[in-house]
Design a protein around this nucleic acid. Structure first.
Length: 717
DNA sequence: TACATTGCGATCCGT
DNA sequence: TCGCAATGTA
């Protein structure tokens, strides 16, 4: 039958075991996406399950869309109506329907981190903590940790022996009240609130737990406590959960993900079948072996035995470059070379890095060499100032209680309403227990307000009333146009200098187009749904993999993707592993998994580059090769010598002995091996180790102190 | 009281 | 490099 065609026996088992819980331990490239798609198709086509009964959770919205396409290709339109999406989008959907049971109005706003910080600043200043060492972001980070672990303010306050948390608990409590007053939810709320609903409202739980006879969850290793609880509750009746994941690819611990959800699946569902997918269809034998050598150094992991029938392929290439510019040039040159010599096309390549800041020099090199590229991530479209402003207007139209958005736009464009006037309005509203929006209708009652400021507030109030009146019944596209025009925002942009003005006006036009596109595509093209989508889109969702360009993204964004040729840039101590992880063994293991995820994205070719130094915000910093590279056995790796014109600037030196200048590319002579070149440099001081490539292709790793190397001033080659 | 300017500080990963 | 807070100016 075609629903099982081309699946190996393990995969078939994962697809056809539909009578109870299944844990699918899926190694990198083992075809888990196919398994999930086939399982859904099998449920619909062979078992006769209604699409209405299926809930499928994916890690990105993009993955959900692709899953839907694959299922449709297998069984056709009977797949329509499946609930498929990320935890956040599925939970938002549940809350729009059932939120009222928790006192959440369906027109709630979703606050992103910028909104959260603005709200938190207000709270800290109300508590007299504005000048304290506690930053809004730090408080929010602790609160987010609590929420994603389902820890309430009371729980947090009760945690013994932590005075810091006692203080945070008060802030947490105020923060929650403020969110409710604003009719707003943060990202963590989207998950916790349905959990709270299901725990306290048996009717609501029964309704959904009865409905979803089959639940599938991808990337289960990266679920957090709240998401785990959500799944546990929803599956409490039918117990038919199919969890797919790989503990070696858990890379979101820092965001509250808890890999024990995966490791303890069999404890939670003792009747579970466990299927291991260990045949890798993606990578060459060499890439697989090299990546296994690295991940096997982790202590906290399940042992697995991945294998492949793919060819041996080429060795992993390590390129030692001078600095970030040299790295960019190396990658761009190699892209050109492989396109010319091996017939690769632009979309075959991806460049992966640890931090978004690394994209800049990479872009410069690509632009300089005329290689088309797309960047995934960085500054999001919806985070641009003018777009956030427009969204704030739209939010205020939908949710009149949203004071964070209202504060954002009350003086944008300039209306002569400053901090003092806004402060008086805010104070009045807090006293009266009303929203800022309601306060605008009672301006005459506000104490200490001069007549001019009062009139300005009045004018802003009537603007909002007018926008509300005129937007009623209009299409999404026209509402956005209306707001841009009537608010004076477009006129304001025209007063800016030319370049700025044009770029930002274009962004607003792009947003109008986005609104039009949304209303064409969505089955429910409301302003609420549009704002929800805008809040929940991920950078990777917007990435077009068919576009004729090299992709640039972070290692995190690469999860779940694959490419014929992968470049991992910045394989250096401090980047991967990131310096913030040095002190913590668990975090270090996560860095290793991250590097592993990057390596296993590659199908045919894997390039790793490492720079001798980088120009940071404090000038030139010497860099050291990542310990992960060190763990790749030499038989799987080939070191590319750097070209002759690459030199480390003179200020770079080891602190070993006298100040010797060690450059990538520095010529050396050894009594036994003859002349060669430094192609890599690791460690500091007495630990300084050099990788030297000698004539005849011999590569030696040497402890510099004892190597008896002669560093040559003149290049003999 | 609002708005422009300068200077400083922080800068991982992201729903 | 960029965004924001303190400071200066209208």
């Amino acid at each position: 039958m075609h629903l099982l065609g081309n699946l190996n026996p393990r995969q078939q088992e994962a697809v056809t075991h539909v009578s109870g819980p299944v844990l699918v331990l899926a190694g990198a490239g083992s075809g888990k996406t196919r398994v999930l798609a086939h399982r859904i198709a099998y449920l619909l086509g062979a078992v006769g399950v209604s699409p209405y009964e299926i809930l499928a959770v994916t890690f990105t919205n993009k993955a959900a869309g692709e899953m839907a396409d694959r299922v449709r290709a297998l069984v056709g339109d009977i797949a329509a109506g499946i609930w498929m999406g990320t935890f956040h989008s599925i939970c938002a959907r549940i809350l729009r329907i059932e939120g009222r049971r928790l006192g959440i109005s369906p027109d709630f706003t979703i606050y992103d981190d910028r909104d959260q910080v603005l709200l938190m600043k207000q709270i800290l200043s109300d508590l007299g903590l504005a000048k304290s060492r506690l930053t809004p972001a730090a408080a929010l980070s602790r609160i987010s940790w609590a929420k994603s672990g389902l820890v309430s303010p009371e729980d947090l306050a009760g945690m013994v022996g932590n005075p810091y948390d006692r203080k945070i608990a008060d802030i947490y409590s105020d923060y929650e009240n403020a969110l409710r007053a604003n009719n707003a939810l943060d990202f963590d709320d989207l998950i916790c609130m349905p959990v709270r609903l299901f725990k306290h409202d048996q009717d609501a739980l029964t309704k959904f737990a009865m409905r979803f006879t089959h639940i599938l969850i991808d990337e289960y290793q990266d679920t957090n406590r709240a998401q785990y609880e959500f799944v546990r509750l929803l599956s409490s009746i039918h117990r038919s959960v199919c969890a797919v994941g790989d503990d070696d690819q858990s890379i979101y611990r820092w965001r509250g993900a808890d890999v024990t959800n995966l490791l303890n699946f069999e404890r939670d569902f003792p009747e579970a079948a466990v299927v291991r997918l260990e045949q890798c269809y993606r990578s060459t034998k060499t890439i697989l072996a090299a990546s296994q050598a690295i991940i096997q150094r982790n202590v906290e992991r399940k042992e697995k035995d991945l294998w492949t029938e793919n060819p041996v392929g080429r060795k992993v290439m390590l390129s030692a470059v001078r600095d970030e510019r040299g790295e960019g040039e190396f990658v761009a040159d190699m892209v050109n070379k492989l396109m010319e010599e091996e017939g690769k096309c632009l979309s075959d390549f991806v460049v992966l890095y640890r931090t978004n800041a690394q994209s800049r020099p990479m872009e410069d090199a690509f632009r300089g060499k005329g290689v088309p590229y797309v960047i995934v991530g960085g500054i999001k479209f919806y985070e641009r100032k003018e777009i956030k402003d427009m969204i704030a207007y739209l939010r205020v139209l939908v949710n009149t209680r949203d004071s964070v958005s209202l504060s954002r736009i009350i003086n944008v464009p300039h209306r002569g309403i400053g901090d003092v006037t806004l402060g008086r309005l805010r104070e009045f509203c807090t006293d009266q227990g009303i929203s800022l929006s309601d306060g605008l209708t009672r301006i005459s009652e506000i104490a200490g307000l001069n007549a001019a400021s009062g009139r300005k507030l009045e004018a802003f109030g009537s603007l909002l009333a007018k926008l509300r009146r005129e937007s009623a019944g209009k299409s999404l596209e026209n509402v956005i146009k209306l707001v841009a025009e009537e608010s004076g925002y477009l006129a304001y942009l025209r007063t800016l200098d030319k370049v700025e003005s044009i770029a930002r006006t274009e962004n607003i036009e792009e947003m109008v187009a986005g609104g039009y596109e949304f209303q064409e595509r969505s089955d429910e093209p409301t302003l609420e749904k549009f704002l929800e989508e805008v809040s929940l889109v991920m950078d990777i969702d917007l990435w077009d993999d068919r576009r004729d360009a090299v992709s640039l993204m972070t290692l995190h964004n690469a999860k779940g993707l694959e490419f014929p040729v992968v470049f991992i840039a910045g394989a250096e101590e401090g980047l991967v592993p990131h310096h913030t992880s040095f002190e913590d063994r668990a975090e270090m293991e996560e860095e290793r998994r991250l590097f592993y995820v990057g390596m296993t994205r590659a199908k045919e070719r894997l390039f790793i580059s490492t720079a001798a130094g980088r120009r940071g915000f404090r000038g030139w910093m010497p860099q050291v090769v990542s310990r992960f590279v060190e763990d790749i056995p030499e038989e799987f790796m080939e070191i590319l010598a750097s070209s002759e014109d690459r030199h480390v600037p003179d200020e770079t030196h080891s602190d070993w002995g006298e100040e010797k200048v060690i450059r990538i590319g520095t010529p050396v002579r050894h009594a036994e091996w003859g002349t060669g070149r430094v192609v890599g440099c690791e460690g500091y001081g007495k630990q300084l180790r050099l990788t030297v490539k000698f004539g005849g292709g011999r590569v030696k790793r040497l402890l510099a102190q004892y190597a008896n190397l002669e560093f040559l001033e003149e290049d003999p080659l």
